[in-house]
Simulated assay, not measured.
Amino acid sequence: MTPKKRKDGGDRLAEYRGRRDPGRTPEPVPGERALPRGDKALPRGDDDTFVVQEHHATSLHWDLRLERDGVLVSWAVPKGLPWSPGTNHLAVRTEDHPLEYAAFEGEIPRGEYGAGKMTVWDRGTYETEKWSEREVKIIVHGSRVSGRYVLFRTRGDNWMIHRMDPPADPDAEPLPESLRPMRPAEKARLPRDQDAWGFEFAWGGRRLAAYVEGGRTRFTDGRGRAVDGPGGLGSRLGAELGSRPALLDGELAVLDGRETYMIYDLLHLDGHPLLDVPYRDRRGRLDDLGLSGPLWQTAPWFPGDGGAVRDAARDQGLPGVLAKRLDSPYEPGEESGDWRFVPS
């Protein structure tokens, strides 16, 4: 493959090649692999291909790449492309990439530049409205993101990316700044109509809400005040959810001598609040997320079997059981009889 030349005669991929060892990285390196034929994921040389790759490097980010003059002009976007014109996101200009990179997915080995897992988050075509050294206006047509965007340079390699169209989902709402958790009323006995309730273990930990967005996480405590989370929890949990914004409710509990974030409610997902959604359905959506990692777990719940849960809590030395009415909404900051703490 002939290296692409800059308009001034220079090699536009020299920096890219200089950062990579073709004997160690699975990434395409010019001169080592020819451009495959017939791959629909690869550009055809029409300056109309875009790709967004999710990059689980030292810090999770998304790489936006636009085909231009024989290379993929690239920006690293730490929080992903903005879904609303109300927010601008940082976009850091990186080295030009070869066209083959539009189809690259794989694990960049530890010790290599950009080490970590790379996957294609979205791809499609784009139209150019303006292209200069300081401003790029485009219309993108992808399966996950579409619309008009502008990238504008602020200083050095730092740019900003702005969505020019209305939100892709006009009903989407940002995560709240703060939310005080719902609290259970303490009762001596389990509810009689147990078929109408779900039961969880009371972990005896510290209440913590997690606001996850753009691969980052912030936390509030039982009073809705901003607090620091345990080291490593925020970044790893953010990477687990990727581009999906979510508000989680749970608590930090010590399990087997290790502090673990036990997640037991989902209050906001993909731009939509779930406070009015019944507890049964919120738990179903939470379970569907499959959140399980070295520092966090989705807490188990058991519909209609409070006695067995209480016995298990007693055997494990846990404080008790939480009974939650299956059709109950989430009432921020309220103590409600729809949630009941029953000591073991």
Rank of each mutant, 00 (worst) to 15 (best):
L175E: 03
E213C: 14
L291F: 10
R216K: 12
R244P: 01
G307D: 09
E186V: 08
R225T: 15
W203C: 00
A308R: 15
P191K: 04
R218H: 07
R189T: 11
G290P: 07
K187R: 15
G198M: 13
A239C: 00
S235W: 14
L175P: 01
P184N: 04
S243L: 05
E173P: 05
L175I: 09
R207V: 01
L274R: 04
R189H: 11
G232R: 07
R180L: 11
L190A: 02
D221F: 05
H268K: 04
V227R: 00
R192T: 07
G250Q: 04
F219L: 06
W197T: 03
D281I: 09
E259W: 02
G306F: 15
R280P: 10
L267H: 10
H268Q: 02
Q297F: 07
G214H: 05
P273E: 09
D195M: 00
P176C: 14
K187Y: 11
R280N: 06
W301K: 09
L179D: 09
P245H: 03
A246G: 03
R282D: 00
D193M: 12
R225S: 14
A202F: 08
P176E: 12
A253K: 03
S292R: 14
V254P: 01
Q194D: 04
R207M: 13
P230K: 11
G229D: 10
A239Y: 10
G205M: 06
A226N: 12
L275S: 02
G229P: 08
P191E: 01
P191C: 07
E213K: 11
G234S: 03
G204Y: 01
R218T: 06
P230S: 10
H272G: 09
E240K: 11
A246Y: 07
A209E: 11
P191L: 01
G306Q: 13
G250A: 09
P245D: 13
L286F: 08
S178R: 15
R258H: 12
G198C: 05
L233A: 07
T298W: 03
L269S: 13
D256H: 09
T217I: 13
D249Q: 02
L179I: 10
Y264W: 08
R282I: 07
R207C: 11
L175W: 07
W301A: 13
G284D: 02
D193K: 13
T220E: 05
G284K: 05
L237F: 11
E200Q: 08
R218W: 14
E200A: 01
D288E: 12
L255D: 15
D195A: 12
L241I: 00
G198T: 14
A202T: 14
G214I: 09
A226S: 15
E200N: 05
R180C: 05
G242K: 04
L274A: 04
G204V: 02
G284Q: 03
G284M: 06
E251K: 00
E177D: 15
L266W: 05
E240T: 15
M182K: 02
G234N: 11
R285K: 13
D281N: 12
